[in-house]
């Protein structure tokens, strides 16, 4: 079966190393993958902040296209896209009237047949069973697995892992040879969409996260969301100024960490694109 791929906007732009590493790992494990043709932006926080119907129509269009293109299962590496797509599917399947209305707006039929995977679910399904045997360079570092908001919340809808102190990434990282640490900010918000419009907030919120990971001896922070990565990485200047000290722990996507462990090329994983130099 071919796995559908919804990269979302970030993975085509400022977080392209996430896409690169996802595709590199997928290729290394011989997983058939196909990008949804002519996909659009999910609307992100902007759409649901300003217009409810738009916030449903945009993800619904993506899901309709996936259905039309014969995909049964799609992986959505961006946690925010994953949550928006999942919430849309939930809302529309719950409310047939709304489903009809959105289908009219999009001029596209929507049935809700596509199952939506986040990156960890995809890895768990297709990579984990063979992961340990493939590890050639164990990721021998203490890591803080950072889940952020949209992998686990809203929990009633996503129903992924446990809502507080999730463990799935930790389990996965342990298989690469890493030592996941116990820490307190696994699911606290990094500031997400306020990154540009209210940078001071992001410095504070992301600062607490990086600060706690550092205090507890993490050598890398592992993420599965482009917004989390760019806030913790690109905003390191603001973070360090909030914390009043220099912290240079790199922030890796989980697919980059796995890629390193199975011996993929650093460049193919896009590690050179990070702001905080990846020394691990």
């Amino acid at each position: 079966m071919t796995l559908g791929f919804y990269p979302g906007c970030s993975l085509k732009g400022s977080s392209r190393e996430y896409a690169e590493s996802v595709l590199a790992v997928v290729k290394a494990f011989n997983i058939q993958i196909q990008e949804i043709d002519d996909w659009n932006c999910c609307g992100a926080t902007a759409a649901h902040s300003l217009n409810k119907e738009l916030s449903l129509a945009l993800p619904a269009r993506v899901l309709s296209l996936a259905e039309k293109q014969g995909l049964k299962e799609i992986v959505v590496p961006c946690a925010a896209c994953y949550a928006r797509l999942s919430m849309t599917q939930h809302e529309l399947l719950k409310n047939p009237e709304l489903k009809t209305r959105i289908a009219e707006i999009n001029n596209l039929e929507y049935n809700g047949t596509v199952s939506i995977l986040n990156v960890i679910q995809m890895l768990d399904r297709y990579v984990t069973p063979n992961l340990e045997s493939r590890v050639v360079k164990p990721f021998g570092h203490k890591v803080a697995c950072y889940y952020g908001c949209y992998l686990v919340r809203p929990h009633e809808i996503l129903n992924f892992d446990r809502v507080e102190e999730p463990l799935s990434m930790d389990t996965l990282m342990a298989k690469t040879g890493a030592t996941p640490i116990d820490w307190a900010f696994k699911t606290e918000c990094c500031g997400a969409s306020l990154s540009i419009s209210r940078t001071s907030s992001v410095g504070r919120l992301s600062g607490k996260i990086v600060g706690d990971a550092s205090d507890r001896g993490a050598e890398a922070i592992i993420v599965a969301c482009p917004m989390c990565q760019s806030n913790l990485d690109m905003r390191r200047k603001e973070i360090n100024s909030y914390l009043g000290k220099r912290i240079d722990i790199p922030v890796l996507y989980i697919t980059q960490a796995i890629g390193l462990a199975i011996g993929l090329d650093r460049k193919a994983l896009g590690l050179q694109r990070h702001f905080v130099k990846v020394k691990v």
Partner: peptide, 11 residues
């Protein structure tokens, strides 16, 4: 406006 929809309150 400053609400980030991080969903923590709801959780």
């Amino acid at each position: 406006w400053v609400c980030l929809t991080c969903e923590m309150c709801y959780a």
